[in-house]
Design a protein around this nucleic acid. Structure first.
Lengths: 203, 203
DNA sequence: ATTTAGTTTAACCAAATGGTTGACAAATGT
DNA sequence: ACATTTGTCAACCATTTGGTTAAACTAAAT
């Protein structure tokens, strides 16, 4: 038995709200549209989640909590730097291929509302880079990888894995491929990205 | 004499609209707020740009036309692959440090409205990857860089340069640094990113 | 059967929002 | 000097939007 989510009214509403909020963003989303998506009356939204703001927060937190575990892996797993890079790239890309709107939604609303981050950081399980930093420095001292600022390496790993999804409409235009081909490029990246990064740092 | 932009009412409005649209996005931006920012009556917005939609389009195109030349450099310049990577990384990061809202704005609205890309592609000067693809393949055959899919290399270059700005709020939280320090990280990236990429591909 | 608590709906409301209008001023042309 | 066009504004309008309300329905508890 896996952790199937129940079909309570709350969940029903939350799923509909996810769909609409993630596609359109907070400002462009309409309560009526969410109600329609959920197949219920608009008043129900306010009955279960007092306001648009609170409903949005529920959606945002739920979305973020789907992504956080992926990131914790690269931060805190007990594996080598190389393994972490391979695992993260493969797992993250697989995950996002299933939830294509998620990263853009998070990034977007965080830019619109940078103080959200403060709330997130306060939560337990918020990804922390300190272990990764130490590990990278150790691996450099061991002579296994070139000297590199661990923060920059971290930013590079995240960038290479996340941006191709967020920037998909633009990149599809530049590279001049259709959706099908682009998706194949993403599949290839499950291994290509890790190879690229490891080539960049391995001595 | 450089190409200073004139202080016509149109430009005045366009600049105010840029400010508001880029910070808040199409949906959350308010015509009244743009009018206030421009120091004029709301009716003037409609006098010069018939509707919110048209004003937005003007802002979007103007924004995109600021970015396109940067990208054309990496696509079409007559320099080696290595030089292109160095020049682009340095120039692009310098540019974005001056216009921090720009990339997120473009990406965001393109995600909200993917068909925009079709219009952009139709324009002349739309960045095209074909020359870059050929050049990368030549450089591979010459034995100067490792075999790599040129599209993937292109996506990597763009990702490493753009995402750190779009994902800034999130990355600042993960890396746990203040705005000042993060900006310094971005300054460092003007050279670090190119070094990273070149290490990844150079034989 | 009646009460009670939770759930659902249609109708309604106040505020906000994009857009319009008509009057008026400032240039511009003759 | 006069007329015509162009620019500017306060007030106004229709619609949309988040949110409320009061009544009705449901199902279990008494």
């Amino acid at each position: 038995m896996t952790s199937e989510e129940q079909s309570t009214p709350e969940n029903n509403i939350l799923n509909a709200a996810k769909e609409i909020f993630q596609k359109k963003g907070m400002a462009a989303a309409r309560m009526q549209e969410i109600a329609d998506e959920a197949g219920i009356n608009k008043a129900m939204l306010h009955y279960y989640y007092r306001s648009k703001e609170l409903l949005f927060e529920a959606v945002f937190k739920s979305a973020f909590h789907m992504l956080a575990p992926q990131l914790n892996e690269i931060m805190n797993a007990d594996t080598s730097v190389f393994e972490k890079i391979r695992n993260f790239s493969s797992n993250y890309i697989s995950f996002v291929l299933k939830h294509p709107y998620l990263p853009n939604f998070i990034i977007q609303e965080l830019n619109r509302n940078p103080e959200f981050v403060k709330n997130l950081i306060a939560e337990k399980n918020f990804p922390n880079i300190s272990k990764f930093r130490q590990q990278v420095n150790n691996t450099i001292e061991a002579g296994e990888i070139r000297p590199i600022n661990p923060e920059q390496l971290f930013i590079n790993i995240i960038s290479l894995n996340i941006f191709p999804f967020i920037g998909a409409p633009l990149l599809k235009g530049f590279v001049n491929v259709n959706d099908e081909t682009y998706k194949q490029l993403m599949e290839d990246r499950k291994t290509d990205v890790a190879d690229f990064i490891i080539n960049a740092i391995k001595i």
